[in-house]
Amino acid sequence: MASHHFDHVDRSGSVSGPPSAGDYVFDRGFRGVAWLSAVFILALVVYIVIEIGGKALPAFSEYGFGFLTSTTWNVQTGQFGILPEIWGTLYSSLLALIIGGVFGVAIAIFLTQDFLHGHLAAVFRTIIELLAAIPSVVYGLWGIYVLIPLLRPVANWLHGEFGFVPFFGTSLSGPGLGPAALVLAIMILPTVASISVDALHQVPYKVKEAAYGMGTTRWEAILKVMLPTAGSGILAALVLGFGRALGETMALAMLIGNSNQISLSLFSPANTLAALLASSFPEAGPVEVRALMYAALVLLAITLIVNAIGLAVMKFATRKFEAER
């Protein structure tokens, strides 16, 4: 590497020279550390999957795929099934994605499309990102003491008047899917908003000029040009938000009611995989722990599949319209 010193070049009085041996050692060392870190992360993921898979294997051989489709969780009789939890996980996360997604993207538009003066927008953005700093358990407490009492009269009125609509099919007695999904929406809001803000910021100014130059109104420019151009970034924001919602544990364990049932009603108590794991582990015997490990594996699989689908969709959207051929 250091063999070319250009010794034949007369370089008296010049500062130019080859890197020192130390520079080369540092260079190689740095490359080594970078590689090691990357490999370590990969190994960690593989190790976690293998470890959980190994612990779940006994339960898998015992209950098979029936575990995914049965609805009872009874330690006494040794019956375990997680269909209600799978349903609750997906349903609550989807609700949170719809609510948090709409608000998050709306906030991102508000912060990037000249509705606010630059400094004010920065302050606003910081406040929204601070939402991510609130501990999950605090959200849970806020949900129990503020949100649920606030929602209950509204929910029960909706149930009374529109009880025939499946979404309002039960009354809200306390914890339930609705409050849990709302809190979850607030929790994913910072993720969705700040990644969408970045995506919208990355739309070049010349694209905005092009839109206004065609004679668009502000909303036409935003809806027909800015949002589609930032589309793949906003999609990434939504996928990450959904991923976060799927795995969220503490606030949900406090708010969702931990009840094994499948219902479309927003006010019915339900359960999620993460909440099931968190609330059952501390007192679980060896048999239940094996079943919980299986449930953990299922949760891991769901999040991995969702993220993979998200990445694929993003790649498709990017390939279609960004400057690649």
């Binding site: 000029e209 206004y212 130059g213 004679g215 040009v225 960004e322």
Partner: peptide, 20 residues
């Protein structure tokens, strides 16, 4: 101004087609 720009079109320094 939106109406003005519908009658008076513009071509910019940098080519700026939409991502569509």
């Amino acid at each position: 101004p939106v109406v003005v720009r519908r009658y008076i079109g513009m071509v910019f320094q940098q080519p700026n087609p939409f991502a569509m």
